[in-house]
Amino acid sequence: MEEIVNFEAILFPADGRSPSMVLLMTSPMTAPTHHGSSTQNPSCMPHPEVHMDYIAENLGSRAWKYQLVEALDGMNRKFACPYIIFYPVVSRDGMPFPVNQTIQNIQGQNFNGDQAWRGNIVVAKYHDNPFTSMMDASMADFPIIKNFLLTHGSPGQ
């Protein structure tokens, strides 16, 4: 039996509290390397929903989506270790998630309500592939994520 693996991730709480480090639990899964292949690449299914308030239960990964951050605007090269931002999309009661006040405060005058990040946001780090090579993030990654969030709204649902 394969083990559940946890990775350090950054949580941006919707209620305006300061970002903090959380453990992002993952569970093992296997996925084919390409269509028709019999070999398998070990992957891990992250569970950011554990840190997302009001998210629909029993939907697993269908209740959230993600956005990859491979570079900041103006960069000539991609990050060696990019980021993956998990955000909730299906709430328990069908109502929209609350605007993430922590990110709204970061964006300040750049805040756009039509592209607001909503609910608790979890940011993880990876190398190569987000589902086969996750790694620990740290608060040293915070300025890079803050810079990205400052100029990028949510991709929405």
Rank of each mutant, 00 (worst) to 15 (best):
A137L: 07
E49C: 01
F148W: 15
M75L: 04
N147R: 11
S138K: 06
S133D: 14
N76K: 08
W117M: 02
N41W: 05
V5M: 12
P98A: 03
P155L: 04
P32R: 10
A56I: 02
S61W: 10
T151A: 10
A63S: 14
N120M: 04
E57R: 13
M45E: 10
N58D: 11
M45P: 04
P96M: 04
M134T: 02
K65Y: 15
L11E: 14
P46H: 07
M75K: 09
Q101I: 05
I144L: 08
K65P: 00
D15M: 02
S138D: 13
E8I: 02
A124P: 10
P28G: 10
M139K: 06
N105G: 04
N110I: 00
M1Y: 08
Q101E: 15
G36M: 03
G74H: 11
A137F: 08
I145N: 07
R92H: 09
M52R: 00
I144E: 12
T30C: 01
G153V: 00
M75S: 09
M29G: 06
D93L: 03
A116D: 11
H127V: 07
L68M: 12
L23W: 14
V5I: 14
E70R: 14
Y66F: 11
T30D: 06
D73C: 01
L24T: 00
H152L: 01
P88V: 00
I10W: 11
E70D: 15
M25W: 06
A124V: 04
L24W: 09
F97Y: 13
D141K: 02
A124S: 15
W64H: 07
Q104S: 05
S37F: 03
P88A: 03
P88Q: 08
L11W: 09
P42I: 01
R77A: 06
P46F: 05
L72P: 11
Y87M: 01
N120L: 02
Y87R: 01
L23N: 15
G119N: 06
N110W: 06
E2N: 12
S37L: 02
